[in-house]
Design a protein around this nucleic acid. Structure first.
Lengths: 217, 217
DNA sequence: ACCTGAACACCGTTCAAGT
DNA sequence: ACCTGAACACCGTTCAAGT
């Protein structure tokens, strides 16, 4: 009854997607579903339904569900790089501690603005088995921003000559940890305060990086 | 054909579970499934199948799938508290920096030993809507261990008088971040080195906590 | 009390076929 | 090339009924 009503009253949607933009349409709709109800709630069938296409059509553009989510993750890392670069442009090139704080702020605010996408990006499903090299390189690009800032701080002598790989991982873990606490609703801070919190949290680690003779407020 | 063969060849499993240990059996089997294939792979039907019971029987003991996983998470946090306390007992009560390092080591090694369970514990599904107060209190107990150690360090003057809530969250975020990196296989450290890495990672933040006149190696 | 058969409304994915 | 109908082997959850 319901299906009969649907097909008679609404007919087929007008859009055809013979042009290759079905791929784009599916990715857009996936992003929307992710932010509405989280990664679990994304299904191939519902995505196809929203686009107005048979669910089988999606497999013409994505090998399977994971492959589609991998592209979502990749796009997410690219956007993350953009917002971080934009935030860093606002800070003095010489204040290396402040720059790492800004970086953490941009990272956490991104995760807070797109929690569904962020969960896909950091979930084990997309990352576990070196499949999806696109995700790997996009993530590496984001990761590299932290290394660049840390290297710069060490080169100018603002930071102690620490093990760079280890500290980059530590900073990355800290930012992701804060973002996760937020996703788990474990942070009793009002929403607008997340960026501030991230900046202060990373500040505790940055303080450990500074040379002992550095002046602190 | 298959179902006919199964029922004729194997008959019903002998166990009855009229004693109330079906609940226990389901939790055990859930733990095993989680470690085998991750949280996604856990299903009520497969769990019931392994226990040798109709899948409907599980709903006699757990309201739904999430409720069962919540108990798994709660048990996980209790075990986490135990392993942390055990590790802390090995450290001098007066070396507060080292104690936080030990705590991070125990935390990360737990996550690495039971990755499936850890993902359930920290996933948003179990935590999102204040349902399952048992999870909340078990997590609070674990969280409190960090606060206790930090308070002690500040009281003796080893640490600066920082904002305790903020720093506890920072340390917690750092530990979880490292554990997540491991789960995502983003840490190019051999498996036995995870605990060492966690200890050093948290050490960078601890260094920021120490009074400026503290001797460092 | 505890357990189950049958059913409902979903999934992801594949085959063979349509334009 | 691009799309779909029908089907397979799964899910979580519920009803009404069995012991």
């Amino acid at each position: 009854v319901a299906s009969a009503r649907r097909s008679s009253a609404k007919k087929k949607p007008a859009g055809r997607y013979h042009h290759g933009d079905l791929r784009r349409a599916l990715l857009d709709v996936a992003g929307a579903m992710l932010e509405e109800d989280g990664p679990e709630a994304f299904t191939m069938r519902e995505a196809a339904r929203r686009v107005g296409v048979d669910h089988r059509a999606a497999y013409r553009h994505f090998e399977d569900r994971r492959a589609l989510l991998a592209v979502v993750a990749e796009d997410g890392y690219r956007e993350l790089v953009e917002v971080i670069e934009r935030e860093l442009a606002l800070a003095a090139p010489s204040d290396h501690g402040a720059r790492l704080g800004r970086l953490a702020r941009a990272y956490v605010e991104f995760a807070n603005r797109r929690p569904g996408r962020y969960q896909v990006m950091t979930g084990p499903r997309v990352n576990e088995d070196g499949r999806f090299p696109g995700v790997e390189t996009a993530l590496a690009d984001a990761f590299h921003l932290v290394r660049r800032e840390l290297d710069a701080g060490i080169a100018t002598g603002a930071f102690r000559p620490v093990d760079v790989t280890e500290v980059v991982l530590t900073l990355w873990a800290g930012m992701h940890g804060v973002a996760s606490l937020i996703a788990m609703r474990r942070l009793r801070v009002r929403r607008e305060g997340f960026g501030d919190f991230a900046e202060r949290a990373i500040g505790h680690t940055v303080r450990g990086l500074l040379r002992d003779d550095t002046e602190l407020d």
